[in-house]
Design a protein around this nucleic acid. Structure first.
Lengths: 334, 334
DNA sequence: TTGTATGCGTTATCAG
DNA sequence: CTGATAACGCATACAA
């Protein structure tokens, strides 16, 4: 790649570099029509493209933000990313997406890498580790917005789902449909990974509010690879649950796999609701009742918060929490 | 963000900038143990992080590649992206992913943007437009690898599926299972979008080889939003097809939606095979027979080709085509 | 073994 | 209205 620089354009159009730079930055108020035309010609002829790296170095801004998701396998993550990219596109910002794979070490590595790459800000789905690092970044006024999970004691703007509400919508729907022995399965409970915790809490709380018994045998939080065994156990109880809530999309898929394997019928043998909308919900047999997160809105909000922060247009409300409401989509599985 | 530079480290450790630079680049062969220690201390104390932007400007390399997919909605795209990121990670390269949304204009914009950002190379799922631009880039020796779709008359390394084979595997399987009135539905045929073309060609060719009739009423290529009507028509024929091949994952989902709506049974009313593996194939009711692309291997290959090209380690085989073999996964839908 | 000087491509300041 | 010159932070040839 022979690269043509601003100097080449200057030479070609017989003006100085600075004049060309002015032109490029739309400051042609006091510029001769003829000069303008000559520069434009030169640019076209030489096929000149500004070098963004050089510009970034000078301006200390890369018009790029980083997005670090805890786990890209969740449909929610990809939906949010899509929304963030849309907003960034409108603001002429670019996005670098990283997947921490639920590993705080990787998360740390990516934060440092994005930092070194001089991104103007980061949207983070925190793994739950690296709290000190987050605090340091906040103290250094590095633009940072948290997504999906709440980190206590660090006052960072956070975009979250009302996770208790998600469970309560599901429980209420189960009850309306006449089920009373209700269970919930989520992936492992890890400190600081608040959605799972809140969903279980919301589940229990709603049960109590409705004066239904809370049976701990119906409440499981474990690694996906132990789901099969746990379901086997749960459904072999003398009084098995009649309906189970899947804590997220991956949990739901694991449960569907088990149910198919055991040739169980939904909802006759076990009714099902999944938190998170999945691509196949509407045409699965039976179609799946889900509690959907407004992923797109949430991503949009996070991006806007961050971009405003970067452009210092925010009214600076440190640690403000933006909580979004889930929505139950009724289908055939319950 | 107060940023600490190499000069600060130099001052703090009482050596010159170049010495620090040496240290950073592991060139401490001829460096005093004590100097080394002092520098290390200073770096830690000041929390110094090299500025990658500045480094990139100097070295004319960003250790970043761009990936432009024609349409991110295809599961295949995301699988390939995942593989590319893995390989890049091993080589300490970063990835910027862009979605052209099947729009050549957007594709062009992204190519230019990535160019301006000085990425070291691009992996492109071509939309089919911008052929001249691709040729120019090739002529300028810009590292470029094509994925999924073949562009004629531009000698660029390309990673492809044997698309005819994909169809023929499906047709052969249909026939083995006793079906003879076979159909295929793909998204719209667009010039240069070779997979769809090849899949239809392979479909017809295999039919002929097996001495089965080719019925054009059973062969549809159209926009997803017209699938419903087309299926309605096709299945209302006096002699409707007994089995239909879905040309890709989105087509499959559209077909499943229709089939559910009409309460048809799979495979009794219509047998089904989908090209592309989908997340729900194994636990759908019935589970879905698919022709899977080795997406991971393909992404890996593309990344390796590009990185070798960037590092000039390739034996330079311009325009070489790397064709991968699809694999039929038999399940219940046929 | 370490330091000095220079340049990467751009923008910004300030003369002219 | 335009041009010279100095940064931005880093790497590298060349000196010392």
């Amino acid at each position: 790649m022979k690269s043509v620089t601003i100097a080449d354009v200057a030479k070609h159009s017989k003006v100085s570099k600075s004049t060309v730079s002015q032109y490029l930055n739309q400051r042609y108020e006091y510029m001769g029509e003829e000069t303008k035309a000559r520069i434009q010609d030169a640019i076209k002829q030489l096929g000149y493209r500004p070098n963004i790296v050089a510009r970034s170095l000078k301006q200390k801004s890369t018009t790029t933000i980083g997005v670090i998701v805890a786990n890209i396998l969740h449909a929610f993550s990809t939906q949010v990313i899509r929304a963030i990219e849309d907003v960034c596109h409108d603001y002429d910002f670019h996005t670098i997406v990283c997947n921490a794979d639920d590993d705080p070490e990787k998360e740390k590595k990516y934060i440092e890498m994005l930092h070194a790459k001089q991104v103007d800000g980061i949207i983070l789905f925190p793994t739950g580790g690296n709290i000190e690092l987050l605090r340091t970044m906040k103290d250094n006024h590095f633009p940072l917005v948290l997504m999906d999970r709440l980190i206590d004691n660090v006052e960072l703007p956070s975009v979250l789902l009302d996770n208790e509400k998600a469970s309560s919508l599901a429980v209420e729907h189960f009850v309306e449909k006449g089920y009373s022995r209700l269970g919930i399965m989520t992936t492992s409970i890890i400190p600081n990974v608040t959605p799972r915790i809140k969903r279980v809490e919301g589940f229990k709380k709603t049960l109590k509010q409705l004066n239904l018994p809370v049976n701990d045998n119906y409440i499981k939080s474990l690694d996906l690879k132990h789901f099969e065994q746990a379901l086997e156990d749960m459904l072999s109880l003398e009084e098995p649950p009649e309906a189970i809530l899947a804590g997220n999309d991956l949990a739901l898929m694991e449960m569907l796999t088990f149910i198919k394997k055991k040739k169980l019928r939904i909802p006759e043998d076990v009714a099902l609701i999944g938190i998170d909308e999945v691509s196949f919900a509407s045409f699965y047999n039976p179609s799946l009742t889900t509690v959907a997160q407004p992923a797109f809105k949430m991503g949009k909000k996070a991006a806007e918060l961050l971009l405003n922060k970067i452009q210092k247009k925010d009214k600076d409300e440190p640690g403000k929490i933006y909580e979004f409401q889930p929505k139950l989509i009724e289908r055939e599985s319950c």
